[in-house]
């Protein structure tokens, strides 16, 4: 969307994220050890972040060296001929990459690939579910962890909560502020049970985030506790 792009461009002039993935997550992703949901969030950050992308490429090169370092295991005696026989088979096709057709010409989509491929529509046209005042969510069907988009009205604050397990958040449009700092397009926050936070969406436009939660949240704020039974986190 044009609005999101404008917001991105205003961030220090280069539009690049300032809150990044740590080496441990990038290493797990490069090694193939993250669930599909966590991988989706990481890959979408990588689409927006040349800095983490360079580190991820370095860690894939480490994977290449790890493969090269392994002592060979003899393959079946007919393995080569079996593979050669399949090279020309036209009935075997690589699975297509999930994709969503480009929107109006010339517009930069606010949701980058690969996340865009998991959505069935542009953000405005998704079946958002109201959660509490100022907050809507849209749940994605992704393996490995609870995955959803959150849409927060400008200036709205979220109930205070802690996490039993880890919550990864990637900002896609707009921004929010919490005890840790300011988070705008492309920024990642990784929160575990050490943190007790209360995000407030920035002014001017909705804040849309991707969150991956691998354990239920426990609300701690005054209203949070009251809201707890109704919030289907």
């Amino acid at each position: 969307m044009a609005t999101a792009h404008k917001a991105a461009a205003s961030r220090g002039g280069d539009g690049l994220p300032s809150h990044h993935l740590d080496d441990a997550f990038l290493l797990d992703y490069a090694a193939g050890n993250t669930s599909e949901a966590v991988s989706l969030l990481i890959a979408t950050h990588l689409a927006l972040c040349p800095e983490c992308r360079a580190r991820a490429e370095e860690l894939e090169a480490l994977g290449g060296a790890m493969l090269e370092s392994l002592a060979p295991t003899a393959v079946d005696h007919d393995a080569l001929s079996a593979v050669l026989a399949r090279l020309d088979a036209s009935d075997e096709v690589e699975p297509a990459v999930l994709t969503l057709p480009a929107n109006d010409e010339g517009q930069v989509p606010s949701i980058p690939m690969p996340l865009r491929g998991y959505l069935k529509a542009e953000p405005d046209a998704l079946a958002w579910q109201p959660v509490i005042r100022g907050l809507e969510e849209y749940e994605l069907d992704v393996g490995g962890a609870k995955t959803k988009l959150l849409r927060i009205k400008p200036g709205a604050s979220m109930p205070q909560h802690t996490h039993e397990g880890r919550e990864l958040t990637l900002v896609l449009e707009g921004s929010y502020d919490d005890e840790i700092g300011h988070f705008g397009r492309g920024d990642v926050a990784i929160l575990d049970d050490d943190h007790d936070h209360r995000p407030i969406a920035g002014p001017g436009q909705d804040c849309i985030c991707l969150t991956v939660i691998d354990a239920p949240l426990r609300l701690t704020g005054r209203f949070g506790r009251f809201l707890n039974p109704f919030v289907k986190f």
Partner: peptide, 19 residues
């Protein structure tokens, strides 16, 4: 694992190139 492997797409218009 029977899972997909999400990866970025350098040809995507939303992709942020190196400065």
């Amino acid at each position: 694992r029977r899972e997909r492997r999400p990866e970025f797409d350098p040809t995507d218009p939303a992709f942020m190139p190196e400065p």
